[in-house]
């Protein structure tokens, strides 16, 4: 029986634009078990990264409401001094762009050593260095005893991402947040980094929150998936249900807009309109409504809620029951829905 590691309850993160606050993350509830990979998928502006930054307490001037229960303790709005004991220690983060996420003027060894210095006060300088070398070896860098004295610009992108992972796992975190960890990397390097993350997760028995827009990465890594649109979770399910039996119109649209690796499809699905900006988010009714104007208004709920449609599979709003792609006829679609 796995333990619940993280429980997010009604998290709302708002940013101030001018005089008003606008919620970029709007009433998000999630939970994560030990050794589980939860992917949060969405496009830019969906609030997925804002969610991750809220968990780390890294937002500068945001208003955070709701609860973030990490091992039962609420860490939302924790004062910096307390949060600093958790960050880099029990919760750590892997970033998107390895080329900019390391301090260009600091040796690799010192950058890894810093996270040890901050959380393992009893380690000597020599011990920190030795341990940094071990970590570099653990993340698969060749000649770690040399790399430890090098500067970031002397390493390739893939190698730098390994260094960032070494920093993240240095204190054996229980929760690892990976924000688009492979977006900036070449495919073959991406595959290696994903393999490494999977391995490390099993070693450390950590829970992982994987933030990404890449559905391929999700299919490879995740146990469960939450799809976010305009600050809300619109669908959440285990990875197989989500890919095999997607329900929410946004999830379905997204899946059919990815060029697949089989030859069948010759036209990609295009979602109408554009992602609304934070200021212009539709705050009432179904937020996806304006992107699927051919679906009748009555199909949407007035105040869309997440509905459990099968075990642990939740979908927001009722419009999924009536959704069809404009390319298809309505009848075809009706049959499709009853089946599931």
């Amino acid at each position: 029986m796995s333990k619940t590691l993280l429980e997010i309850k009604n998290l709302t993160t708002s940013f101030r634009i001018g005089e008003e606050y606008y919620a970029a993350v709007d009433d998000v509830s999630l939970n994560l078990q030990e050794n589980e990979v939860l992917a949060i998928v969405g496009e830019s502006g969906s609030g997925k990264s804002a969610t991750a930054f809220s968990l780390m307490g890294l937002h500068n001037r945001a208003k955070i409401e709701g609860e973030i229960l990490f091992k039962g303790r609420d860490i939302a709005n924790l004062p910096a001094s307390k949060m600093n004991k958790i960050r880099g220690n029990e919760i750590s983060m892997i970033f998107q762009d390895p080329l900019t996420a390391l301090n260009p003027l600091m040796e690799i060894g010192k950058q890894i050593g810093e996270v040890l210095l901050l959380h393992k006060k009893d380690m000597s300088k020599q011990e920190r260095r030795d341990y940094s070398i071990q970590l570099l070896e653990r993340v698969g860098l060749p000649r770690p005893e040399r790399v430890v004295d090098q500067f970031p610009h002397e390493l390739s992108g893939g190698m730098r991402q390994r260094v960032i992972i070494a920093i993240a796992i240095a204190n054996k975190p229980e929760l690892l947040i990976a924000d688009e960890p492979t977006t900036a990397l070449d495919v073959t390097i991406q595959a290696q980094i994903l393999d490494l993350m999977r391995e490390l997760k099993d070693d450390l028995n950590s829970g992982v929150i994987l933030i990404t827009h890449d559905l391929g990465v999700v299919a490879e890594m995740a146990d469960r998936v939450a799809v976010m649109y305009a600050g809300q979770i619109v669908e959440i399910a285990d990875v197989e249900s989500l890919f095999v039996n997607p329900q929410h119109p946004y999830t379905r649209s997204l899946l059919s807009s990815v060029p697949a690796t089989d030859f069948a499809q010759d036209r990609l699905h295009v979602i109408q309109g554009i992602v609304p900006s934070l200021k212009n988010l539709p705050r009432e009714g179904c937020r996806f409504k304006e992107r699927i104007p051919w679906i009748e208004d009555t199909a949407h709920e007035e105040d869309p809620q997440l509905h459990e449609i099968s075990e642990n599979h939740y979908v927001r709003c009722t419009c999924y029951q009536h959704f069809y792609f404009p390319e298809e006829s309505k009848e075809e679609q009706a049959n499709g829905v009853t089946e599931s």
Partner: peptide
Amino acid sequence: QKDFIITARAKGAPEQRVYNRHIFRN
């Protein structure tokens, strides 16, 4: 505004250290 400053904060570095070690030095 640089990304590596976020990295430093994510390590759990107190603000004073973030400034002294990462921002001022650079």
